[in-house]
Write a protein that binds this DNA or RNA. Structure first.
Lengths: 135, 135
DNA sequence: ACGCGAACGATAATCGTTCTCATTTGCAAC
DNA sequence: GTTGCAAATGAGAACGATTATCGTTCGCGT
């Protein structure tokens, strides 16, 4: 199991460039787990690493396609990304503040499969979002 | 229980205007249950009722605020609306074609409440979306 | 029928995101 | 270590969905 970022990029078939290393670093070492493109962009600006917004969008999409990141389109219009660590989980999102909480519930998981199958849906690569209000 | 559209509007505190009647009619009598603003706009155009796109957006938002319609922001970027008939249900959305299927599963419903409560979320006015692929 | 505030339609503006294209960079071959 | 070239970048234009603006029109009580 390697932990160096350039290796992560190479493994994903991506050339190791400065913007990509910085963005991956944010997800692997940063404090926020769920970030939008805007969040990433501002984080980089605040640390003096100026990466173009277009590049942020491009890189996030590439990382998602390479399986390094997961993309979620929660309500609120903007996509948020998180590191893909291979452990499936679902999300509760606060409709007020946008706060995202991960959870895993095997009962929901199995009912969900059952319901989807009954309705003719293929549940592979699914995601489940619960919207509520945090307190 | 009244079924006339002008009454529905009056009950919601909305003046009875032509665009509003036509849009409400689409949801109450139309064949599509889940429609985006664009869908509504095109439907109206196709029947010769030309209503401005801005008006469609305004009216849909008013109907939602008045409780006549429910708005969902499924993945795919655009909001879809459906008639609010007071019966709670959740949605499975196909990530390929956008097809929306309603369902209700009491086991999921109760686990969902439990999970949310444990994580400090207030589940009032929640919604749950499952994304999958239809076949 | 009259008048007035609410609602409308066209269009401009906004927001998140993607595209375009000229410039720069990573990196493999010399 | 320089060179070359495709790939990646950055600035800004373009885009699709939605909202705001503003002058005109309409619903409806008088």
């Amino acid at each position: 199991m390697d932990t160096s970022q350039p290796e992560h990029l190479k493994n994903a078939g991506l050339k190791s460039t400065l913007p990509r290393l910085k963005i991956l670093g944010l997800f692997e070492n940063g404090q926020e787990r769920h970030m939008s493109a805007e969040d990433v962009y501002k984080q980089l600006l605040s640390t003096g690493d100026d990466v173009g917004l277009a590049t942020v969008y491009r890189v996030l999409t590439q990382f998602q396609q390479a399986g390094l990141l997961l993309r979620h389109n929660f309500e609120g219009g903007k996509s948020v990304f998180e590191l893909n660590e291979g452990k499936h989980h679902d999300h509760i999102v606060c409709l007020q503040c946008g706060h995202v909480q991960e959870f895993y519930d095997s009962a929901i998981e199995s009912r969900q499969k059952k319901v989807a199958a009954e309705l003719g849906f293929d549940i592979h690569e699914h995601s489940l979002h619960i919207y509520a209000d945090c307190t």
